[in-house]
């Protein structure tokens, strides 16, 4: 396998969402893919009470020369992969910079305070507009909708992995992702996850090509 050079050292990726959205599986897939492409990887997970509806985030750092700790410094995330708009935006506040590439599943998961009518969930149009003004690239992926086409909304996380591959933000190869996905998901849902991956990949490529027109 040919080793590709990272554009910078380290490359910092944040994967974020809500407990139960499959954050850790995706950080595993991304990190394993990094390993297969012969980069060094460290992942820091924040999943204290993750199954209890709280926010979850994984910091994935890729590097070649020296070793890094598991937490990305403030303002240094190069890519933010968000399974939920609010949580993606929250990570931008802390970790985003002008050149951050943001890939967001547009499907909101309402916090309990919003469900209870105590807080207001921002309008997605306004939120995305604001994010576009702040960072270099924002890709909005209807990942939950795409996943529901496969009959399983739970694979929105793998649709988002596909979108990450299709975004071209990071020098990951689609075939490496597929190798890893095949390895880490149970055999009976392999095909489903592969399909989900390609749905996301194509969606991201489509958006990119429309933009470049």
């Amino acid at each position: 396998m040919q080793k590709e050079t990272l554009l910078k050292e380290p490359v910092n990726l944040i994967i974020t969402g809500v407990g139960g959205q499959g954050n850790i599986l995706v950080s595993e897939i991304v990190a394993q893919t990094g390993c297969r492409q012969e980069w060094n990887v460290v992942v820091g997970e924040s999943y204290g009470l993750s199954q209890r509806g709280g926010a979850v985030s994984s910091h994935v750092r890729l590097f070649q020369h020296q070793e890094y700790g598991p937490i990305i410094p403030i303002g240094e995330a190069d890519v933010i992969l968000g399974f939920e708009p609010l949580e993606a935006a929250r990570q931008v506040v802390d970790y985003g910079h002008k050149n951050t590439c943001l890939i967001i599943n547009s499907h909101p998961v309402y916090p309990i305070g919003v469900l209870r009518g105590k807080n207001k969930y921002p309008s997605l149009d306004l939120l995305f507009k604001k994010l576009r003004e702040m960072v270099a690239e924002v890709l909005i992926i209807p990942a939950t909708k795409l996943a529901s086409q496969l009959g399983e909304t739970v694979v929105q996380n793998v649709v988002m992995v596909g979108a990450l591959a299709g975004s071209g933000c990071l020098p990951f190869r689609a075939d490496t992702f597929i190798e890893v996905i095949k390895k880490v998901v149970p055999p009976k849902v392999r095909t489903l996850n592969e399909k989900a991956f390609y749905l996301g990949l194509e969606e991201a490529q489509k958006i990119k090509s429309l933009k470049s027109l």
């Binding site: 935006a89 916090p111 306004l126």
Partner: peptide, 16 residues
């Protein structure tokens, strides 16, 4: 950051 933060409601822990 401040104006983005202002849009974001907190996400409290919740029983499943």
């Amino acid at each position: 950051k401040k104006s983005l933060q202002a849009l974001l409601p907190p996400r409290d822990y919740v029983l499943c």
